[in-house]
């Protein structure tokens, strides 16, 4: 069958589409690392502000860090889980097409 031997133009086109697709697919997950780190840092400073404002050091910082770590991790875990689910869905649809 000749259907599996596309000309070079089509191959270039496919490669270009693949790069675009990769960006589109992984774009939403490009910032999950920053988000995890930012969650801890921001909540730490929020806790520190509470400590200074109400004189409850170090409870504010500890609570802040705990919330940051837990919340950041939940968000990270959910993002990765949805990425895996997307990949599984793509794999299943590819198999169906073949």
């Amino acid at each position: 069958m000749n259907s599996e031997s596309p000309d070079s133009g089509t191959q270039d086109e496919k490669k270009e589409i693949k790069i675009q697709g990769t960006y589109r697919e992984y774009g939403p997950y490009l910032t999950i690392g920053i988000q995890l780190a930012a969650a801890v840092v921001v909540f730490f400073f929020l806790g520190d502000w509470f400590d200074t404002r109400y004189g409850i050091a170090p409870i504010g910082k500890l609570v802040g860090i705990s919330i940051g770590i837990v919340g950041g991790f939940i968000k990270f875990f959910k993002s990765v889980a949805s990425l895996i689910a997307d990949e599984e869905r793509n794999r299943t649809s590819d198999k169906r097409e073949n």
Binding site: Q35, A38, A39, V42, F43, I67, G71, G72, I74, K75
Partner: peptide
């Protein structure tokens, strides 16, 4: 916990 994290996500 999640609402501040999601709001943070908008800025990252």
């Amino acid at each position: 916990i999640m609402v501040p994290i999601e709001i943070l996500g908008l800025f990252t």
